[in-house]
Design a protein around this nucleic acid. Structure first.
Lengths: 190, 190
DNA sequence: GGTCTGCTAGACTGGCCAGTCTAGTTGTCT
DNA sequence: AGACAACTAGACTGGCCAGTCTAGCAGACC
Protein backbone atom coordinates (compact mmCIF):
# COMPACT_ATOMS: atom_id res chain seq x y z
CA UNK A 1 0.00 0.00 0.00
CA UNK A 2 1.89 2.92 1.42
CA UNK A 3 -0.90 5.34 0.67
CA UNK A 4 -0.74 8.69 2.38
CA UNK A 5 -3.90 8.72 4.38
CA UNK A 6 -3.56 12.28 5.49
CA UNK A 7 -6.17 13.58 3.07
CA UNK A 8 -8.60 10.85 3.95
CA UNK A 9 -8.30 11.71 7.65
CA UNK A 10 -8.79 15.38 6.89
CA UNK A 11 -11.96 14.75 4.95
CA UNK A 12 -13.37 12.47 7.62
CA UNK A 13 -12.46 14.96 10.32
CA UNK A 14 -14.19 17.73 8.41
CA UNK A 15 -17.39 15.72 8.16
CA UNK A 16 -17.23 14.79 11.83
CA UNK A 17 -16.46 18.25 13.11
CA UNK A 18 -19.17 19.76 10.93
CA UNK A 19 -21.69 17.35 12.35
CA UNK A 20 -20.74 17.24 16.02
CA UNK A 21 -18.30 20.09 16.56
CA UNK A 22 -15.18 19.64 18.60
CA UNK A 23 -17.00 16.91 20.53
CA UNK A 24 -16.25 14.42 17.76
CA UNK A 25 -13.91 11.80 19.15
CA UNK A 26 -10.69 10.86 17.43
CA UNK A 27 -11.88 7.26 17.43
CA UNK A 28 -14.93 8.27 15.45
CA UNK A 29 -12.87 10.24 12.96
CA UNK A 30 -10.52 7.31 12.47
CA UNK A 31 -13.44 4.95 11.98
CA UNK A 32 -15.00 7.30 9.44
CA UNK A 33 -11.71 7.53 7.56
CA UNK A 34 -11.35 3.72 7.69
CA UNK A 35 -8.00 4.22 9.26
CA UNK A 36 -6.34 3.19 12.50
CA UNK A 37 -6.32 5.75 15.28
CA UNK A 38 -2.57 5.62 15.24
CA UNK A 39 -2.54 6.78 11.63
CA UNK A 40 -4.36 9.93 12.66
CA UNK A 41 -1.60 10.64 15.16
CA UNK A 42 1.02 9.90 12.55
CA UNK A 43 -0.18 12.90 10.54
CA UNK A 44 -1.38 15.26 13.23
CA UNK A 45 0.32 15.73 16.54
CA UNK A 46 -2.91 16.22 18.45
CA UNK A 47 -6.65 16.58 18.06
CA UNK A 48 -6.21 20.33 18.37
CA UNK A 49 -3.83 20.43 15.42
CA UNK A 50 -6.21 18.37 13.34
CA UNK A 51 -9.02 20.70 14.29
CA UNK A 52 -7.04 23.77 13.34
CA UNK A 53 -6.23 22.29 9.96
CA UNK A 54 -9.90 21.59 9.33
CA UNK A 55 -10.86 25.06 10.54
CA UNK A 56 -8.46 26.70 8.11
CA UNK A 57 -9.95 24.74 5.23
CA UNK A 58 -13.51 25.51 6.23
CA UNK A 59 -12.80 29.22 6.45
CA UNK A 60 -11.20 29.19 3.02
CA UNK A 61 -14.15 27.40 1.49
CA UNK A 62 -16.64 30.07 2.55
CA UNK A 63 -14.92 32.69 0.46
CA UNK A 64 -16.97 33.72 -2.57
CA UNK A 65 -15.45 35.22 -5.66
CA UNK A 66 -16.68 38.52 -7.04
CA UNK A 67 -16.41 38.26 -10.79
CA UNK A 68 -15.16 41.60 -11.91
CA UNK A 69 -16.00 40.63 -15.47
CA UNK A 70 -19.64 41.60 -15.44
CA UNK A 71 -19.89 45.22 -16.45
CA UNK A 72 -23.33 45.77 -15.01
CA UNK A 73 -23.15 46.61 -11.30
CA UNK A 74 -26.51 45.21 -10.28
CA UNK A 75 -25.93 42.03 -12.22
CA UNK A 76 -22.54 41.56 -10.61
CA UNK A 77 -23.87 42.16 -7.11
CA UNK A 78 -26.73 39.75 -7.69
CA UNK A 79 -24.39 37.02 -8.78
CA UNK A 80 -22.06 37.66 -5.89
CA UNK A 81 -24.94 37.89 -3.42
CA UNK A 82 -26.40 34.61 -4.52
CA UNK A 83 -23.07 32.82 -4.33
CA UNK A 84 -22.28 34.33 -0.96
CA UNK A 85 -25.62 33.35 0.48
CA UNK A 86 -25.29 29.83 -0.82
CA UNK A 87 -21.91 29.41 0.80
CA UNK A 88 -22.65 31.01 4.14
CA UNK A 89 -26.27 29.97 4.58
CA UNK A 90 -25.99 26.48 3.13
CA UNK A 91 -25.73 23.45 5.38
CA UNK A 92 -21.96 23.46 5.26
CA UNK A 93 -21.60 27.17 5.97
CA UNK A 94 -23.91 26.99 8.95
CA UNK A 95 -22.24 23.84 10.20
CA UNK A 96 -18.83 25.44 9.91
CA UNK A 97 -20.06 28.43 11.85
CA UNK A 98 -21.50 26.28 14.57
CA UNK A 99 -18.28 24.32 14.78
CA UNK A 100 -15.85 27.21 14.78
CA UNK A 101 -17.56 29.86 16.89
CA UNK A 102 -17.41 28.11 20.26
CA UNK A 103 -13.72 27.27 19.84
CA UNK A 104 -12.61 30.78 18.99
CA UNK A 105 -11.54 31.64 22.55
CA UNK A 106 -9.11 28.72 22.51
CA UNK A 107 -7.62 29.69 19.14
CA UNK A 108 -7.77 33.46 19.01
CA UNK A 109 -4.93 34.02 16.57
CA UNK A 110 -6.25 31.39 14.18
CA UNK A 111 -9.74 32.87 14.42
CA UNK A 112 -8.50 36.28 13.35
CA UNK A 113 -6.66 34.74 10.42
CA UNK A 114 -9.78 32.88 9.43
CA UNK A 115 -11.86 36.04 9.52
CA UNK A 116 -9.28 37.92 7.51
CA UNK A 117 -9.08 35.25 4.82
CA UNK A 118 -12.83 34.93 4.37
CA UNK A 119 -15.17 37.73 5.44
CA UNK A 120 -12.42 40.31 5.73
CA UNK A 121 -11.12 39.64 2.25
CA UNK A 122 -14.62 39.75 0.85
CA UNK A 123 -15.24 43.15 2.41
CA UNK A 124 -12.03 44.37 0.85
CA UNK A 125 -12.84 43.21 -2.66
CA UNK A 126 -16.44 44.27 -2.50
CA UNK A 127 -15.33 47.70 -1.31
CA UNK A 128 -12.99 47.94 -4.28
CA UNK A 129 -15.78 47.16 -6.69
CA UNK A 130 -18.10 49.63 -4.98
CA UNK A 131 -15.45 52.33 -5.01
CA UNK A 132 -15.07 51.83 -8.74
CA UNK A 133 -18.81 52.16 -9.18
CA UNK A 134 -18.72 55.35 -7.13
CA UNK A 135 -15.98 56.72 -9.33
CA UNK A 136 -18.06 55.83 -12.37
CA UNK A 137 -21.01 57.75 -10.94
CA UNK A 138 -23.10 54.61 -10.57
CA UNK A 139 -23.30 54.97 -6.81
CA UNK A 140 -23.33 57.94 -4.48
CA UNK A 141 -19.85 58.84 -3.31
CA UNK A 142 -19.44 57.50 0.23
CA UNK A 143 -17.32 55.24 2.43
CA UNK A 144 -16.99 52.18 0.20
CA UNK A 145 -15.78 49.90 2.94
CA UNK A 146 -18.72 50.73 5.15
CA UNK A 147 -21.05 50.21 2.21
CA UNK A 148 -19.53 46.79 1.58
CA UNK A 149 -20.02 45.87 5.22
CA UNK A 150 -23.65 46.90 5.04
CA UNK A 151 -24.27 44.81 1.95
CA UNK A 152 -22.65 41.75 3.47
CA UNK A 153 -24.63 42.30 6.66
CA UNK A 154 -27.89 42.50 4.77
CA UNK A 155 -27.07 39.43 2.72
CA UNK A 156 -26.35 37.18 5.67
CA UNK A 157 -27.28 38.96 8.88
CA UNK A 158 -30.58 37.87 10.30
CA UNK A 159 -30.92 34.98 7.88
CA UNK A 160 -27.81 33.39 9.33
CA UNK A 161 -29.27 33.75 12.80
CA UNK A 162 -32.47 32.14 11.66
CA UNK A 163 -30.63 29.18 10.22
CA UNK A 164 -28.40 28.89 13.27
CA UNK A 165 -31.46 28.73 15.50
CA UNK A 166 -33.19 26.16 13.32
CA UNK A 167 -35.82 28.64 12.15
CA UNK A 168 -36.73 28.24 8.52
CA UNK A 169 -37.92 31.03 6.30
CA UNK A 170 -39.69 30.31 3.10
CA UNK A 171 -38.68 32.97 0.57
CA UNK A 172 -36.78 31.82 -2.52
CA UNK A 173 -33.07 32.56 -2.66
CA UNK A 174 -33.02 34.44 -5.94
CA UNK A 175 -35.94 36.65 -5.01
CA UNK A 176 -34.63 37.50 -1.56
CA UNK A 177 -31.15 38.23 -2.89
CA UNK A 178 -32.63 40.57 -5.46
CA UNK A 179 -34.69 42.42 -2.86
CA UNK A 180 -31.62 42.86 -0.69
CA UNK A 181 -29.41 44.09 -3.51
CA UNK A 182 -32.10 46.50 -4.63
CA UNK A 183 -32.55 47.85 -1.12
CA UNK A 184 -28.81 48.36 -0.96
CA UNK A 185 -28.76 50.09 -4.35
CA UNK A 186 -31.53 52.41 -3.21
CA UNK A 187 -29.51 53.45 -0.18
CA UNK A 188 -26.53 54.15 -2.40
CA UNK A 189 -28.27 55.67 -5.41
CA UNK A 190 -26.69 58.83 -6.75
CA UNK B 1 -30.57 28.47 57.04
CA UNK B 2 -32.99 26.84 54.68
CA UNK B 3 -32.29 29.30 51.94
CA UNK B 4 -33.50 28.37 48.51
CA UNK B 5 -30.29 28.19 46.56
CA UNK B 6 -31.92 27.79 43.19
CA UNK B 7 -31.26 31.36 42.15
CA UNK B 8 -27.67 31.21 43.30
CA UNK B 9 -27.08 28.09 41.23
CA UNK B 10 -28.70 29.70 38.21
CA UNK B 11 -26.51 32.74 38.43
CA UNK B 12 -23.35 30.67 38.84
CA UNK B 13 -24.38 28.44 35.96
CA UNK B 14 -24.97 31.45 33.76
CA UNK B 15 -21.50 32.79 34.48
CA UNK B 16 -19.93 29.40 33.88
CA UNK B 17 -21.79 28.62 30.69
CA UNK B 18 -21.07 32.09 29.33
CA UNK B 19 -17.38 31.60 29.96
CA UNK B 20 -16.86 27.99 28.95
CA UNK B 21 -20.01 26.93 27.14
CA UNK B 22 -21.62 23.58 27.82
CA UNK B 23 -18.16 22.30 28.75
CA UNK B 24 -18.52 23.79 32.23
CA UNK B 25 -18.70 20.96 34.72
CA UNK B 26 -21.43 20.69 37.31
CA UNK B 27 -18.73 20.56 39.96
CA UNK B 28 -17.43 23.90 38.81
CA UNK B 29 -20.88 25.45 38.83
CA UNK B 30 -21.52 24.15 42.33
CA UNK B 31 -18.19 25.48 43.52
CA UNK B 32 -18.92 28.87 41.97
CA UNK B 33 -22.31 28.95 43.66
CA UNK B 34 -20.72 27.91 46.97
CA UNK B 35 -23.14 25.07 47.11
CA UNK B 36 -22.90 21.30 47.28
CA UNK B 37 -23.21 19.42 44.01
CA UNK B 38 -26.20 17.64 45.43
CA UNK B 39 -27.99 20.95 45.86
CA UNK B 40 -27.69 21.58 42.15
CA UNK B 41 -29.42 18.27 41.52
CA UNK B 42 -32.07 19.09 44.07
CA UNK B 43 -33.23 21.97 41.88
CA UNK B 44 -32.48 20.70 38.39
CA UNK B 45 -32.97 17.14 37.29
CA UNK B 46 -29.95 17.17 35.01
CA UNK B 47 -27.23 19.35 33.56
CA UNK B 48 -29.28 19.61 30.38
CA UNK B 49 -32.25 21.02 32.29
CA UNK B 50 -30.05 23.54 34.04
CA UNK B 51 -28.58 24.53 30.70
CA UNK B 52 -31.98 24.99 29.13
CA UNK B 53 -33.06 27.21 32.00
CA UNK B 54 -29.98 29.37 31.58
CA UNK B 55 -30.48 29.47 27.82
CA UNK B 56 -34.03 30.73 28.20
CA UNK B 57 -32.87 33.51 30.48
CA UNK B 58 -30.03 34.53 28.20
CA UNK B 59 -32.33 34.72 25.20
CA UNK B 60 -34.77 36.87 27.11
CA UNK B 61 -32.05 39.25 28.22
CA UNK B 62 -30.99 40.06 24.68
CA UNK B 63 -34.38 41.52 23.85
CA UNK B 64 -34.28 45.29 23.45
CA UNK B 65 -37.29 47.48 23.91
CA UNK B 66 -38.38 49.88 21.22
CA UNK B 67 -39.74 52.91 23.00
CA UNK B 68 -42.80 53.89 21.06
CA UNK B 69 -42.87 57.13 22.98
CA UNK B 70 -40.40 59.06 20.87
CA UNK B 71 -42.33 60.76 18.10
CA UNK B 72 -39.33 61.30 15.87
CA UNK B 73 -38.61 58.24 13.77
CA UNK B 74 -34.87 58.71 13.38
CA UNK B 75 -34.46 59.46 17.06
CA UNK B 76 -36.40 56.34 18.00
CA UNK B 77 -34.41 54.12 15.66
CA UNK B 78 -31.15 55.55 16.95
CA UNK B 79 -32.06 54.82 20.51
CA UNK B 80 -33.24 51.34 19.65
CA UNK B 81 -30.20 50.66 17.48
CA UNK B 82 -27.82 51.69 20.19
CA UNK B 83 -29.56 49.56 22.80
CA UNK B 84 -29.76 46.58 20.46
CA UNK B 85 -26.10 46.80 19.58
CA UNK B 86 -25.10 47.08 23.20
CA UNK B 87 -27.05 43.95 24.10
CA UNK B 88 -26.07 41.79 21.18
CA UNK B 89 -22.52 42.94 20.62
CA UNK B 90 -21.56 43.37 24.26
CA UNK B 91 -19.52 40.74 26.07
CA UNK B 92 -22.61 39.01 27.40
CA UNK B 93 -24.43 38.95 24.10
CA UNK B 94 -21.46 37.51 22.29
CA UNK B 95 -20.84 35.01 25.07
CA UNK B 96 -24.45 33.91 24.99
CA UNK B 97 -24.23 33.45 21.25
CA UNK B 98 -21.10 31.40 21.54
CA UNK B 99 -22.66 29.28 24.24
CA UNK B 100 -26.02 28.67 22.61
CA UNK B 101 -25.20 28.21 18.94
CA UNK B 102 -23.32 24.92 19.15
CA UNK B 103 -26.03 23.34 21.32
CA UNK B 104 -28.93 24.21 19.03
CA UNK B 105 -28.96 20.83 17.28
CA UNK B 106 -29.53 19.11 20.62
CA UNK B 107 -32.35 21.46 21.62
CA UNK B 108 -34.10 22.39 18.40
CA UNK B 109 -37.49 23.20 19.87
CA UNK B 110 -35.98 25.37 22.58
CA UNK B 111 -33.82 27.14 20.02
CA UNK B 112 -36.82 28.11 17.96
CA UNK B 113 -38.57 29.42 21.04
CA UNK B 114 -35.49 31.41 21.96
CA UNK B 115 -35.32 32.95 18.51
CA UNK B 116 -39.01 33.79 18.58
CA UNK B 117 -38.84 35.46 21.98
CA UNK B 118 -35.80 37.59 21.14
CA UNK B 119 -34.91 38.36 17.52
CA UNK B 120 -38.26 37.29 16.16
CA UNK B 121 -40.18 39.48 18.55
CA UNK B 122 -37.90 42.41 17.79
CA UNK B 123 -38.51 42.04 14.07
CA UNK B 124 -42.23 42.04 14.76
CA UNK B 125 -42.22 45.22 16.84
CA UNK B 126 -39.79 47.02 14.62
CA UNK B 127 -41.94 46.13 11.61
CA UNK B 128 -44.96 47.58 13.40
CA UNK B 129 -43.17 50.83 14.04
CA UNK B 130 -41.93 51.00 10.45
CA UNK B 131 -45.37 50.24 9.08
CA UNK B 132 -46.74 53.14 11.10
CA UNK B 133 -44.03 55.38 9.69
CA UNK B 134 -44.95 54.22 6.19
CA UNK B 135 -48.57 55.04 6.84
CA UNK B 136 -47.53 58.45 8.07
CA UNK B 137 -45.61 59.05 4.85
CA UNK B 138 -42.28 59.15 6.66
CA UNK B 139 -40.98 56.09 4.80
CA UNK B 140 -41.60 54.68 1.36
CA UNK B 141 -44.42 52.16 1.34
CA UNK B 142 -42.87 48.71 1.24
CA UNK B 143 -42.71 45.36 3.04
CA UNK B 144 -42.27 46.51 6.65
CA UNK B 145 -41.19 43.14 7.93
CA UNK B 146 -38.47 42.86 5.33
CA UNK B 147 -37.35 46.39 6.12
CA UNK B 148 -37.14 45.52 9.81
CA UNK B 149 -35.02 42.48 9.00
CA UNK B 150 -32.67 44.60 6.94
CA UNK B 151 -32.24 47.13 9.72
CA UNK B 152 -31.52 44.44 12.29
CA UNK B 153 -29.08 42.79 9.90
CA UNK B 154 -27.23 46.02 9.33
CA UNK B 155 -27.10 46.78 13.03
CA UNK B 156 -25.57 43.47 14.02
CA UNK B 157 -24.58 41.51 10.94
CA UNK B 158 -20.92 41.70 10.17
CA UNK B 159 -20.08 43.37 13.45
CA UNK B 160 -21.28 40.32 15.32
CA UNK B 161 -19.10 38.14 13.14
CA UNK B 162 -16.13 40.35 13.85
CA UNK B 163 -16.67 40.10 17.59
CA UNK B 164 -17.26 36.36 17.42
CA UNK B 165 -13.97 35.92 15.63
CA UNK B 166 -12.10 38.10 18.06
CA UNK B 167 -11.58 40.86 15.51
CA UNK B 168 -11.91 44.31 16.97
CA UNK B 169 -13.08 47.32 15.05
CA UNK B 170 -12.44 50.77 16.27
CA UNK B 171 -15.39 52.97 15.36
CA UNK B 172 -17.43 54.46 18.20
CA UNK B 173 -20.81 52.94 18.92
CA UNK B 174 -22.91 56.06 18.61
CA UNK B 175 -21.32 57.11 15.36
CA UNK B 176 -21.59 53.70 13.74
CA UNK B 177 -25.19 53.29 14.84
CA UNK B 178 -26.04 56.67 13.34
CA UNK B 179 -24.38 55.80 10.04
CA UNK B 180 -26.31 52.56 9.87
CA UNK B 181 -29.65 54.13 10.67
CA UNK B 182 -29.05 56.86 8.14
CA UNK B 183 -28.13 54.33 5.46
CA UNK B 184 -31.32 52.49 6.25
CA UNK B 185 -33.38 55.68 6.12
CA UNK B 186 -31.88 56.52 2.75
CA UNK B 187 -32.96 53.17 1.37
CA UNK B 188 -36.46 53.75 2.67
CA UNK B 189 -36.85 57.44 1.96
CA UNK B 190 -40.09 58.43 0.31
C1' DG C 1 17.15 -10.95 1.74
C1' DG C 2 17.08 -7.12 4.73
C1' DT C 3 15.44 -2.84 6.22
C1' DC C 4 12.48 1.04 6.32
C1' DT C 5 8.15 3.29 6.32
C1' DG C 6 3.26 3.56 6.45
C1' DC C 7 0.04 1.19 8.13
C1' DT C 8 -3.12 -2.23 10.99
C1' DA C 9 -6.07 -3.94 15.28
C1' DG C 10 -6.70 -3.57 19.62
C1' DA C 11 -5.35 -3.21 24.36
C1' DC C 12 -4.22 0.09 27.88
C1' DT C 13 -3.49 4.41 31.04
C1' DG C 14 -4.97 8.33 33.19
C1' DG C 15 -8.01 11.96 33.52
C1' DC C 16 -12.46 14.14 33.51
C1' DC C 17 -17.11 14.18 34.62
C1' DA C 18 -22.47 13.29 35.22
C1' DG C 19 -24.99 11.55 38.38
C1' DT C 20 -25.66 8.74 42.84
C1' DC C 21 -25.07 7.63 47.56
C1' DT C 22 -23.95 8.11 52.52
C1' DA C 23 -24.11 10.14 56.66
C1' DG C 24 -24.68 13.93 58.91
C1' DT C 25 -26.02 19.19 60.04
C1' DT C 26 -29.04 23.13 60.44
C1' DG C 27 -33.15 25.40 60.78
C1' DT C 28 -38.32 25.48 60.68
C1' DC C 29 -42.81 24.27 61.72
C1' DT C 30 -46.10 21.99 64.88
C1' DA D 1 -39.57 17.24 71.30
C1' DG D 2 -40.09 15.20 66.91
C1' DA D 3 -40.52 15.34 62.03
C1' DC D 4 -39.33 17.34 57.88
C1' DA D 5 -36.96 19.87 54.31
C1' DA D 6 -32.91 22.09 52.63
C1' DC D 7 -28.58 21.61 52.83
C1' DT D 8 -23.43 19.92 53.56
C1' DA D 9 -18.77 17.28 52.33
C1' DG D 10 -16.98 13.93 50.12
C1' DA D 11 -16.65 9.31 48.41
C1' DC D 12 -17.98 6.43 44.60
C1' DT D 13 -19.59 4.29 39.91
C1' DG D 14 -19.51 3.97 35.21
C1' DG D 15 -18.65 5.92 30.96
C1' DC D 16 -16.12 8.50 27.57
C1' DC D 17 -11.98 9.78 25.55
C1' DA D 18 -7.05 11.67 24.24
C1' DG D 19 -3.07 9.84 23.62
C1' DT D 20 0.30 5.72 24.02
C1' DC D 21 1.96 1.19 23.36
C1' DT D 22 2.55 -3.42 21.37
C1' DA D 23 3.09 -6.54 17.92
C1' DG D 24 2.69 -7.43 13.59
C1' DC D 25 1.68 -6.78 8.34
C1' DA D 26 2.64 -5.06 3.47
C1' DG D 27 4.83 -2.84 -0.05
C1' DA D 28 9.17 -0.12 -1.55
C1' DC D 29 13.82 0.37 -2.21
C1' DC D 30 18.61 -1.46 -2.28
Amino acid sequence: MTVLHRERVLRAATTSFLAHGYRSSVDEIARRARVAKQTVYQHFTSKDELFKEVARELAARVFSELESSSADLREGLLRFGLAYRQRTLGAEGIGAFRTLVPEVPRFKALARTMYASSAGEMVRRLAERLAAAMDAGELRRDDARFAAEMLLSMLAGLDRIKRLFAVDDAEGEAKRTARIVDTFLRAYAT
